[in-house]
Design a protein around this nucleic acid. Sequence first.
DNA 1: AAAAATCCTGAAAACGATTGCATAAATTAA
DNA 2: TTAATTTATGCAATCGTTTTCAGGATTTTT
Lengths: 331, 331
Amino acid sequence: MEVVTLKDIAKALNLSTSTVSRALRDSYEINEKTKILVAEYAKKVNYRPNPIALSLKDNKSRAIGVIVPEIANNFFSQAINGIEDEAYSRGYHVVICQSHESLEREKENLRHLFERRVDGILISLSGKTMDIEHILEYSESNFAVVFFDRVPDSEGFHKVVADNFLGAFAATEYLIKQGKKRIAHITSPLTLSITKERLEGYKKALEKHGIEVDNQLIKHCGFDPEEAKAAVNEIMNYQNPDAFFTCSDRLALHCYEAYQNRKNELSAETEFFGFTNLNVSHLFSPKLSTVVQPAYEMGTRAAKILLDQLESKRKVKDFEKIVLETYLKIS
Amino acid sequence: MEVVTLKDIAKALNLSTSTVSRALRDSYEINEKTKILVAEYAKKVNYRPNPIALSLKDNKSRAIGVIVPEIANNFFSQAINGIEDEAYSRGYHVVICQSHESLEREKENLRHLFERRVDGILISLSGKTMDIEHILEYSESNFAVVFFDRVPDSEGFHKVVADNFLGAFAATEYLIKQGKKRIAHITSPLTLSITKERLEGYKKALEKHGIEVDNQLIKHCGFDPEEAKAAVNEIMNYQNPDAFFTCSDRLALHCYEAYQNRKNELSAETEFFGFTNLNVSHLFSPKLSTVVQPAYEMGTRAAKILLDQLESKRKVKDFEKIVLETYLKIS
DNA sequence: AAAAATCCTGAAAACGATTGCATAAATTAA
DNA sequence: TTAATTTATGCAATCGTTTTCAGGATTTTT
């Protein structure tokens, strides 16, 4: 498979590169016969415009960046599937970076993507990201940014999120309807938008059913397995709950593990509910029910907004916030 | 963050772009004072060479492509982590594509990456890929290819694989030492290199311990959950085995699910062994032990070979085949 | 003091594509 | 027949870099 350029075609057909270029893009200035001649030859030699030359010409890379905490996590890998499907179908490349829940890495990712001249990025913030100064810095220079899942409070950005409030509310209410009264809630750091919304959903459900919120049953922790374990232990030392509702993919699994290890100290009826997209949760025992986010759709929607913005002439002024429904996967 | 070009610097300092370019790359031809002047100014305005211009210039994109069956699979997402770490640290971008176990998609991925002018690719073949005609087509035009995990039989390529034979041998032997005598083996289609090697390991272990190979206990199937279920059912209808040894990440999980559903029909001692990198296998019940591949290392090694080849002057003539050790994760 | 060597810098071409402008050739109008 | 118009094509600049070549200025050698 040899790489053919416009110049090669021009030389072969004894035309100028400009004529060939125009013929291929069906310009009105070119004779019909010439067009056919060129088109046939181009097809024969399998000509493809060099995307790098085009990028240089119009100062667009036709590539977008994605920054996620980690891809070895079903929620994010499903979201990436969505992003890639949308992007590839529209002729864009996708460059994936992982922040590994570190602000430093997130900054490096941003710099890297910016220097590589991606046209825009999709980002789900790291667990350590408190503000978005480092992103604002870039978003000025017509570098489009769309947030998904873990979004900042700030106005002035496109965002695609799950209905974290309702998801947490539904899960909590489900547990209550199962007769649970002491529902522990272990969740991610309060810096994350998702944390607050889910906590609200949890509290609202308790409130609706006349159960008092017990702050001792609520723990925040990071993504270190030890922290999760400690949180479960603390809660169990305080009082054995009859249900756990834990959030955030990775964290929920760490908690589940600690819970599984101490399951024998709990009543057989104790239930465990997560907020994850783990695609094998139904194979777990003791059972693990989860709130599932429409990860794939979140990916396509976020990518669509970004690409629409990149391809629109005028600057976007009103920012969309799309909220997608979650559903419960009861095991 | 404004984008600055060489020309901007040249204009600001009243020099020519060539002088600026040379100064920045510390050419011996440039006066020390000029160099310092340029370097300081470049730093001040945060100059970064435009990678797209460089790509055009030296006909390299400094991007590599990766084609895997799917990323929502721990083995591949870990391998990708390795690939990205190696590639980013050497200034390369990584473009990930998924074949979704389809030959058609694999071809599309190839075409896409080739047209996008990646400098080379890392590929793990789809479950439907019987030959590599479609890859040969490209590999001629100095488009480097390195295979990993699922590699073709053909000579003349760099390959990085796990020691599938030994991994399967060790798992089977472990089961035998646990007293199992009727070990079922459900595995991927024989078109895949990994299938053959693992099957050999399984047979060799039986042989070593004087257990006759029963072909009725061996089933090949694709990646559709129903096929896996059917395979488990067929085997159980034939004769209840006292152990299952199933291969290939996704497939092994499908089998496990079928097995879990019919567990009550089996003796309590029945064991299940998979060949997967699932990072939550220890949370499963009934227990799921697995042969684990060094996925991350496989990624870094494969990427290293590819990048070394891309950066070496002369054409590589002897091709490496790297075989990495697996280990057992007993639950 | 003239010739040779050294040092520093800039102009221009190249990579592959697009596009404004110029122009030759063919056609039509006067 | 000449002028005006249309048609079809090519030239050259552009995007941001690197690099070859050329040459002016300064220093060293004879």
